[in-house]
Design a protein around this nucleic acid. Sequence first.
DNA 1: GATGAATGAGGATTCATTCAT
DNA 2: AATGAATGAATCCTCATTCAT
Lengths: 199, 199, 199, 199
Amino acid sequence: MVTKGDKTKQRILEVAASLFWKRSYHGLNMNTISEAAGVNKATVYGYFPSKEALALAAIENYHQYVQTQIFDTVRQATDHPIAQLEMVYQAFHAATQAVYEHDGICPGCPFVNMVTELATENPALRAKIQGCFDRVGEFYRQLVRSAKQQGLATADLDEESTVRGLIAVMNGAFIASKIHNSPDEILKMLPAARRLLTS
Amino acid sequence: MVTKGDKTKQRILEVAASLFWKRSYHGLNMNTISEAAGVNKATVYGYFPSKEALALAAIENYHQYVQTQIFDTVRQATDHPIAQLEMVYQAFHAATQAVYEHDGICPGCPFVNMVTELATENPALRAKIQGCFDRVGEFYRQLVRSAKQQGLATADLDEESTVRGLIAVMNGAFIASKIHNSPDEILKMLPAARRLLTS
Amino acid sequence: MVTKGDKTKQRILEVAASLFWKRSYHGLNMNTISEAAGVNKATVYGYFPSKEALALAAIENYHQYVQTQIFDTVRQATDHPIAQLEMVYQAFHAATQAVYEHDGICPGCPFVNMVTELATENPALRAKIQGCFDRVGEFYRQLVRSAKQQGLATADLDEESTVRGLIAVMNGAFIASKIHNSPDEILKMLPAARRLLTS
Amino acid sequence: MVTKGDKTKQRILEVAASLFWKRSYHGLNMNTISEAAGVNKATVYGYFPSKEALALAAIENYHQYVQTQIFDTVRQATDHPIAQLEMVYQAFHAATQAVYEHDGICPGCPFVNMVTELATENPALRAKIQGCFDRVGEFYRQLVRSAKQQGLATADLDEESTVRGLIAVMNGAFIASKIHNSPDEILKMLPAARRLLTS
DNA sequence: GATGAATGAGGATTCATTCAT
DNA sequence: AATGAATGAATCCTCATTCAT
């Protein structure tokens, strides 16, 4: 059963996740989070023992979201690897575009943002995000295998480096959108990703 | 003529650049910088009017370094695009490896780190780094053109998306090294970059 | 209902007002204020967003005090303009005397102190204090009108310049007390004020 | 003989005096002074041992200026007390007006500014300025005596309180100009001063 | 006679966190 | 289940002052 406290915790988590996405870890403070969630600061600490714990929970929240709302959805929508790849980029673009229209900024990828900012000073967070990307890698691995099976990629295509490259291009796409403050940079990266998968 | 002050300023700049590379902008404070440079905090402010100005100068310092020590050097060493690509990745790997052996961390790319952390809150810095990547794009554009001319890439290879993809893969490589805290991730990204360029 | 926080805020305000009276704006720091109020510096900032805001609130606090505790009280005590003038100077003298006995200094007038120090660099504060003196002017205007009605002043006495002069003499009295570090300078200014009003 | 050093010292002094007039003591720093004087900060310290000493010298400089350029000049221009009073106010207004047109601010009276800001924390400066006002008092005392002799004031006019009042009105005039940020406030105070002297 | 270079101490402000209620 | 109130420690930055040259 969902108690009132569960709902409060969930609200804090979602508000925090949204803010951690748009701002840097150090650039976001607990005051802003509690105010945006409409609760007292002490309430936040009642559910999450520290800012770091909240950030970790936000990461996990994103992970669930990406897996279920994007990767699972895409897998269910089509078997075609290229179509899947396109759908993924469309989804990332749409999310970025929505933030851009609302806030005028391109937030990038929450995993990349956090790990880039904190990897060298917070091993726990780095390890957590490494785990998230392992599962992202599984999605791309399936994609590569499907492409081979469906004859879209040559049989000798190296799986390891292709998966690696697809993740890199995806992360690079998010960074490009931040650098140029333009959501379209994400879509413009699709040809490169497609070529990695198919040629 | 190089005065004592010039040398002090240069020392502060290099120390700051090194630290901004290894730590996040917000995670690094002016105290640490001044101590590492062996000068008083007020001395730092005597040469750089603010933390932001110092970070901007550090960015410019990196930009010069990358252009002259890496891209120019590589261009002078060989005309072969694939060899050039390999040399670039070797250089990035070597720099990362050196830090890793000394500090146990993978610092990633200073441009990517800064822009990822600060793009949404500091337009000046974002614009500055955008300019840096414009020049990085010029290098990759030459690479693509050379590859076409030398018959290493097909004539119909799309220049725009390939340059974009090569930058993305490079940035993705730095991020992968941070995520896995492993310098080798940079070298392991080379095959993907090579395929983008040649196939 | 008066909460604990309200009381803390009021205590901070009164302590700050008292200190801003005795010391210059720049010569007083937030540390001293928070310590004198018996709270942490961050607590002060929890109630007042900046030193300037606190100074402005202190000004308003003095304004209320002067209007209610001095001008209103005097008006209620007597209808006689000269008696009112004397009571006002007595009140200013008594306040100055109290500080003098306690601290050995003549603090002057908080409005004059602040505006003299900050008028050229802080337009908001200047405007605020201008508003306070507008209301002081209203008191003196009533005084002049009463004096005319009661035949204590000639009918052709110029209201404007007399009000202006009475404010100037009052402010000049506070300054004289600071210059000579002697509370009695305030009382010694009464004859001049009286002549302005009646002759 | 006037050495190069003498000229430098004089330039520093005049620049400092001008700046101390327009800004508060704490609001003006030694950097600004040395830059405005076109010399190195250490040069300033070569001629004046401290900021306080420089301020004291600036006060003395103003004192000389007021005595010779204003009071002596006025005395030489006319024997008529009221004309003298008017000339003094005209001079103060002209000086204020000049600053106002150049900087958009009313600087007030340097003696009043300094003593108001620093009297409670700097006894030496307070005493110095007290001495300046003693000599200002002498001017007004002469004025009152002349007025009596010339039948412009009644013989029983109290000298003490009138001198006191004239100084107060003059200081109050400067403060009024600061409060309203309007040079004309000085001229508008003339009627009150005149009435103190003559009625 | 003048300056380039440097600094110790302090100043306003912020932040993650705690605890009594 | 939630909050009002409070804080220790830091953070960016400034300033009067010094000294070797």
